[in-house]
């Protein structure tokens, strides 16, 4: 029997997710928003592995495998888009990238 109950892992994951959400909502720098999104993905991964352990089912670990691959693909494309945006507009500040507004 493990001495750490599952609710501790889930609360930690919720806390990390909440911190990531705050970061994604309040930062102006596009890269920092991206970092917060990676934090949220990690919190989700932690939840999946914790539940996989509790239910004795390996499916959770497999889903984490796929989430990591998708996160890598998303990071690559997102950063490439940031580079393209920077070349065109010379800024990453999301407050100033509002060409499509209104």
């Amino acid at each position: 029997m493990s001495s750490v109950p599952i609710s501790w892992y889930l609360m930690l994951a919720a806390l990390l997710f909440a911190i990531g959400t705050v970061g994604a909502l309040t930062r102006r720098n596009g890269i920092s928003i991206f970092l917060s999104i990676e934090l949220m993905l990690n919190a989700a991964n932690l939840t999946l592995v914790a539940f996989s352990r509790q239910m004795g089912d390996r499916t959770g670990q497999l889903i984490v495998f796929f989430v990591m691959a998708v996160a890598a693909a998303e990071a690559a494309v997102g950063l490439a888009l940031f580079i393209a945006v920077f070349r065109a507009r010379r800024t990453i500040d999301v407050n100033r990238l509002n060409l499509m507004r209104g």
Binding site: S2, S7, W8, R53
Partner: peptide, 22 residues
């Protein structure tokens, strides 16, 4: 964010803290 954590925590304190399987 704090409310969010609080809600999650409330769910788990209600359910008790089930131990992890070995």
């Amino acid at each position: 964010a704090l409310i969010f954590i609080g809600m999650v925590g409330l769910v788990f304190w209600r359910q008790g803290a089930p131990d992890l399987q070995p």
